[in-house]
């Protein structure tokens, strides 16, 4: 019987590692494809500054690849883990950890490609501001990595927390649910933050005098966009660290799995929506100085309301965890 479990654990580790690496690489590849397309246009428009453009692309890509290197680390940890001392729960831990990191790297990969592409266009438009645009691009794509960092934290917690002594029956569902909540929850925020950083680069390239307030509002918008990913991390932490009593029926397992799925999927839409809002606000703040205060206020209110469906998902998951 122990051999049997070891075989299944190995299968789970390979599937988990494959998912982590595959999803992670796809996200980064889409982002880089966007960057390359934008850089194509930029070089076609002014070939004489192609050196600057290549430099920007290189720096942007180096930062943007952080998320997929996280996925690589998790995949390697899973593939070369110690298979000697395993239990039934290890199967779901490995699956969930790989899934969480893979899904979490998609959003950040796509998101951090967007500002890099826009920075190439911006440098062509305003070559004198190239240092400033590069700085904003790097800051934007570094902050857009934070949902992937949340997913990394969840995967590492899953791998290193001691689950011995927990009953198998509801705990396996809690573990897989935690992976879904943190991984899927990171997609929306990653893409949304990428959109905000993109319009930050665009705004500075169009209106160099507005650089300061554009930067400040961009950082504010990105911080608010990140909240849905934080909700995903919150549900994941609760699912991992709360010890559930043993239950024979399949219903309680499904409740925990449903809680994770609910929060994960429910965070995608609000994340992207908040990104749209902040993108538009940053764009217009860079164009009209007089309306900065009104625009910041409406941006915060609009983002808060767009987030409310994500909060309903949070409520349903909390009910599924604590009440049922």
């Amino acid at each position: 019987m122990t051999d049997d479990i070891q075989v299944w654990v190995k299968v789970a580790a390979f599937i988990g590692g494959g998912m982590a690496m595959g999803f992670g690489a796809i996200g980064a590849a889409i982002g880089e494809g966007y960057t390359a397309a934008k850089a194509n246009e930029a070089i076609a428009r002014s070939p004489q500054i192609s050196g600057d453009l290549f430099k920007t692309m290189l720096l942007g890509q180096a930062i943007a690849e952080t998320a997929s290197i996280f996925a690589l680390i998790i995949a390697m940890l899973l593939l070369f883990a110690d298979f000697s001392n395993v239990s039934t729960l290890t199967i779901s831990i490995f699956l969930s950890s790989g899934l969480c990191m893979g899904l979490g790297a998609i959003g950040s990969g796509i998101g951090s490609g967007l500002p890099t592409g826009e920075a190439c266009t911006g440098i062509v438009r305003q070559p004198g501001m190239k240092n400033r645009i590069t700085t904003i691009m790097l800051a934007g794509s570094a902050i857009a990595q934070s949902p992937a960092i949340f997913a990394l934290v969840t995967s590492l917690i899953l791998l290193f927390v001691d689950f011995t002594g927990r009953p198998v029956s509801p705990t396996w569902a809690a573990i897989i649910g935690a992976g879904f909540a943190s991984g899927l929850g990171a997609i929306g925020s990653g893409i949304g933050e990428g959109l905000v950083a993109k319009s930050g680069c665009e705004g500075i390239a169009r209106q160099p005098l507005a650089a300061t307030r554009t930067t400040n509002v961009m950082l504010l918008g990105m911080a608010v966009t990140e909240t849905t990913a934080i909700y995903g991390l919150l549900i994941a932490c609760i699912l991992i660290f709360k010890s559930f009593p043993a239950a024979e029926s399949i219903a309680s397992s499904m409740a925990l799995l449903g809680a994770g799925l609910c929060m994960g999927i429910g965070a995608i839409g609000p994340g992207i929506g908040e990104g749209f809002t902040a993108q538009s606000a940053v764009k217009w703040i860079s164009r009209s100085e007089s309306s900065t205060a009104q625009l910041t206020r409406s941006m915060l209110v609009g983002q808060a309301v767009a987030e409310s469906t994500g909060i309903y998902a949070l409520v349903i998951s909390l009910v599924l965890i604590f009440v049922i």
């Binding site: 796809i26 980064a28 880089e32 494809g33 390359a36 397309a37 850089a39 194509n40 690589l72």
Partner: peptide, 29 residues
């Protein structure tokens, strides 16, 4: 290696650039 493969992505369509980046990421990783 990232810098060396960068200029090869210029001059092709967006989808092909995506596929190309995917392959380059896998080989570098």
């Amino acid at each position: 290696l990232m810098g060396e493969t960068l200029p090869l992505k210029i001059g092709i369509s967006r989808n092909r650039a995506g596929v190309y980046s995917f392959l380059s990421i896998l080989s570098r990783y």
